[in-house]
Design a binder for these strands. Structure first.
Lengths: 131, 131
DNA sequence: CCCAAAATACCACCACCAGTTGTTAGACTT
DNA sequence: AAGTCTAACAACTGGTGGTGGTATTTTGGG
């Protein structure tokens, strides 16, 4: 899966440098057979190993991961994580209203006020659910 | 070593979202005890796992690897995304109280209630500043 | 303050797989 | 055709990734 992709890149970069599996293996301190497994994607690569490999190959570790990746846009996440129902997950990008809420909430230094807001919300929610 | 660093970041980002170890664990289908090990850095993280985790946390996998790089937090993106023009300059991860607030706020479906809360906050803030 | 419950930390055990060794086969020299 | 270098594949094993169980801390509402 992802290990296969990474393995392929390892192979490409290694060959690009004209290194044999043996040479690469020696630089890292493991057997060349294990390198084979990595390149074939038949064993999972740990982050630590990948770091060693990237170092041995003189490339940044992100060279193996970057690909078409990009920083997830808010819209993507919204789509991905607001599935069926109104399951209220904590994990959602903040929408405009919520951002306003946060900014306001942070502006008031008064503990009592903040606690009051929370209490008030709880009350309303209970009321809603009761009906 | 590198696993400890990654573990720390996992913890940071997870908490920033107000997720428990249990919730994160469920999202990727492993035990929360294993999450603990990852966060403590006591077991090596495979690239595959890290990818799952980064997806579950809504960040790019490079967020855990980029050493000095800035962590592209989703909540960060969300906040900077604010169309209103007035953005929060430096993002602070959500603290406990704010997470509670958000959860409650999202629980109430009633628009009026939410608007009321905002209005109320504005009032209090104005009051505070006047004194 | 107090108390339940959620969240986290800690421990011991097991199964699997990362890593090893060994063998084979092509590809190239000389 | 014999030696060398490289890479693919099989069989084995120890370490550790992953688990369930329990103890401890932290939380937050009354």
């Amino acid at each position: 899966m992802i290990d296969e992709k990474i393995g392929l890149k390892i192979k490409q970069i290694r060959k690009g440098w004209g290194l044999s599996q043996i040479e690469l293996a020696e630089r890292i301190g493991i057997s060349f057979q294990q390198i084979q497994k990595y390149e074939k994607g038949s064993t999972r690569i740990s982050v630590m190993r990948l770091e060693q490999i990237s170092e041995a190959l003189g490339v940044n570790i992100t060279a193996f991961l970057g690909e078409g990746e990009r920083i997830p846009r808010v819209s993507d996440l919204a789509l991905r994580y607001t599935p069926g129902g109104n399951r209220l997950e904590t994990f959602q990008p903040l929408n405009k209203e919520e951002i306003t809420l946060l900014k306001l909430f942070r502006k008031t230094k008064n503990r009592k006020v903040r606690e009051g807001i929370l209490k008030q919300l709880r009350g309303v929610i209970e009321l809603e659910n009761r009906k």
